[in-house]
Simulated scan of single mutants.
Amino acid sequence: MTEKTSLKQSRNPFLTIGRYVRQVIDETRKTVTPTAREWMAWSIAAFVFVILLMILVTGMDFGLDKLTLMVFG
């Protein structure tokens, strides 16, 4: 293949999209599906993390509210 031909093919959007789709399919085949135990563990970890963040934000909200009332009250 000459340099000109390869340059034309690399600019062809259909070939680029086709190559991208093939690469996505190849990478998807390499993935490993988690077990039910792993799903449960990660779900619980995410739930606990979200609860902790909610507690942190709520505490900061109430704390800053009290601080603002003390300063400007």
Rank of each mutant, 00 (worst) to 15 (best):
30 K>N: 08
70 M>T: 15
17 I>G: 00
66 K>G: 07
14 F>I: 02
37 R>M: 10
52 L>I: 10
17 I>A: 13
1 M>E: 04
15 L>Y: 01
46 A>M: 14
64 L>Y: 10
60 M>T: 00
28 T>H: 08
66 K>M: 13
66 K>V: 10
50 V>K: 08
13 P>R: 06
32 V>H: 06
10 S>L: 12
69 L>N: 13
1 M>D: 06
53 L>T: 06
49 F>L: 12
11 R>I: 07
25 I>S: 09
8 K>R: 08
55 I>N: 00
29 R>W: 02
24 V>Q: 09
68 T>A: 12
15 L>T: 05
28 T>R: 15
59 G>W: 03
44 I>F: 09
32 V>P: 03
15 L>D: 06
31 T>D: 04
59 G>K: 03
21 V>I: 15
33 T>N: 04
42 W>I: 15
25 I>T: 11
29 R>H: 11
5 T>P: 00
40 M>N: 14
72 F>S: 12
12 N>Q: 02
18 G>Y: 02
15 L>V: 05
2 T>N: 12
58 T>P: 03
43 S>T: 14
48 V>Y: 02
44 I>Y: 07
3 E>K: 03
23 Q>N: 15
40 M>C: 10
66 K>N: 11
58 T>F: 14
70 M>P: 00
32 V>Q: 09
21 V>W: 00
4 K>F: 06
44 I>M: 10
5 T>W: 11
23 Q>K: 15
68 T>I: 11
26 D>I: 09
6 S>N: 12
66 K>C: 04
73 G>M: 02
39 W>K: 14
13 P>S: 03
8 K>A: 04
52 L>P: 05
56 L>W: 11
15 L>H: 05
16 T>G: 01
63 G>W: 00
27 E>H: 09
26 D>T: 12
9 Q>H: 10
30 K>G: 04
69 L>C: 07
19 R>F: 13
54 M>H: 07
34 P>T: 04
28 T>S: 14
64 L>H: 07
53 L>A: 06
15 L>W: 03
23 Q>C: 10
46 A>H: 13
71 V>G: 06
47 F>W: 11
16 T>V: 14
14 F>S: 11
73 G>H: 02
59 G>S: 10
10 S>A: 13
7 L>M: 08
28 T>Q: 15
9 Q>A: 05
41 A>D: 12
49 F>D: 03
34 P>A: 03
41 A>I: 14
48 V>G: 05
64 L>S: 01
47 F>E: 07
9 Q>T: 03
17 I>S: 07
59 G>E: 01
40 M>Q: 15
27 E>Q: 10
61 D>N: 14
25 I>G: 01
17 I>K: 11
63 G>L: 06
18 G>N: 05
67 L>Y: 11
26 D>F: 08
46 A>I: 13
23 Q>L: 12
66 K>E: 12
70 M>A: 13
27 E>F: 00
23 Q>V: 08
19 R>N: 00
70 M>R: 13
41 A>Q: 14
49 F>E: 01
67 L>D: 03
31 T>S: 02
51 I>D: 01
73 G>Q: 07
58 T>K: 08
